[in-house]
Design a protein around this nucleic acid. Structure first.
Lengths: 258, 258
DNA sequence: CGGCCGACGTCCGTGTTTCGTAAGGTTCCT
DNA sequence: AGGAACCTTACGAAACACGGACGTCGGCCG
């Protein structure tokens, strides 16, 4: 009801391409895009892990040789949040790489140099094979909030929120870690994928997110500030809705905090 | 004595399966049963709502296509009595269904035709997520005090205390070492991380902490002064130790603070 | 092709919170 | 009684969060 006029985007599979070479990444992304995939990109390990955690792609194309973080490590890290099909890019056709890749959980691999068409075929193949598995993530819920990571849709009280990419990722991360204090550094690392950076960026985005999510952004109830430490997402105490105690802290009496 | 030999009484999760097709329902119920769930069944909307209201299942497996009452309506109706995880069965993997499911409050969905094994996996996954949250990190408790280090939350008699960083860390340290005298130097080292420093800092902070924690800060019962040595945190002396474990210092796990 | 607009990262001024220390007063032990 | 340890209060400085605003980049539309 209500939001009818919005034309539903086709259920495009989302692929995360991880490669530090801009040229390679560009070509791969381009081909995948033309093949009908929604392509996300990351240039290094931490960024890849962050984006994978935030966006939950249907498949990851992962270069084995990455600066800083090893590709295998990245693969492991990504897989820790759930099973995701991975197609690896390896420099040589060595058995070594193949073994390593398969060991770590890659579903297929392509050796450089490769034809983009072949890569697309492999991706499609792996996805076809994996479509029978529980790959697509469920919904995230807490109180009156509901997020659909796959469709990148956010609802509050059944009303769609118009969130930007960063805002969505940030909120999704909060929903995945309810009731826990998340420091700015941690958020910067796991949502932005930056190891260093101006932490005020986080502050500002939290502020903008509050603007859209909170009833009274000046007195936030969902994303509360923990002074000197960071922010904490709390399941709704329930001022308006009846349902909502799924994850709630039972013994809560005084909601007065301001 | 008597009930010793009984290994944990099976806390079987109860699942309500709602499907008008007896074959589907039978298969699903069978698999869920074998997976260790207590299965209840309903063939149509009204029956489902009634059984859900009566039995309060831990999860509902709900067919979207039901005779008479719409599956979405059923979902809404069931949810009105409280938040219950719902796994939807949909005919096609349409975005439409996905969006509807999101709006109506489902937690996951499976498209027909589906493998019963996958459904079981989804059910377990949703349940795991729903029940894992309250059992988050270990709390520090003692008497009427309860600290949640991960959330940086402090409760006394279920009422939240407004502690600053230092106060929280200090209290947490006391709770981790109940009944032991802690010298100012030691506190300065392990709470502040300073090797040297004005010890009166500790004194003042203990005072400020007492102000918020003690009933009568002038006559402290929790954090008592040991003259010439330091302070000692005592698990509450009688009268109020009603809440289960008096001194449940959970697994350590290492210092969080730095 | 150029202008418009949204998203994003950064910077700055301001009000608030927290912290460490200093300065008396009080209690306790010898 | 004397001295040391402890309590209490007060205050300045620093850290912190917030809101507003600006410049840039990229996509979209005219």
């Amino acid at each position: 009801m209500g939001t009818a006029s919005v034309s539903v985007p086709p259920p495009r599979r989302r692929v995360l391409v991880v490669d530090d070479d801009p040229t390679v990444a560009e070509v791969v992304a381009s081909y995948l895009d033309r093949a009908g995939f929604a392509v996300d990109r990351a240039a290094d390990g931490p960024a890849a892990v962050a984006r994978a955690a935030a966006a939950r792609p249907d498949l990851v194309v992962l270069d084995l040789m990455l600066p800083g973080m090893d590709g295998l490590e990245v693969c492991r890290a990504i897989r820790q949040d759930g099973p995701v099909p991975v197609v690896m890019l390896t420099a040589r056709g060595d058995e070594d790489d193949r073994i390593l890749g398969l060991e770590v959980g890659a579903d297929d691999y392509v050796t450089k140099p490769f034809s983009p068409r072949e890569l697309v075929l492999r991706v499609e193949s792996v996805l076809r094979r994996a479509s029978a598995l529980p790959a697509r993530g469920p919904w995230l819920r807490s109180g009156t909030l509901a997020l659909d990571p796959a469709a990148r849709r956010a609802l509050r009280d059944g009303v769609e929120l118009q969130l930007t990419i960063r805002e969505f990722d940030l909120l999704a991360f909060f929903l995945r870690h309810p009731g826990r204090v998340l420091g700015r550094e941690e958020l910067m690392r796991r949502v932005w994928g930056w190891e260093f950076g101006d932490l005020s960026t986080v502050t500002v985005h939290v502020r903008r997110l509050r603007e859209k999510v909170e009833d009274d952004p000046a007195r936030p109830r969902l994303i509360s500030t923990v002074w000197g430490v960071g922010y904490r997402f709390d399941p709704e105490p329930g001022a308006d809705a009846d349902a909502g105690e799924t994850t709630g802290v039972a013994a809560d009496g005084g909601g007065t905090d301001g």
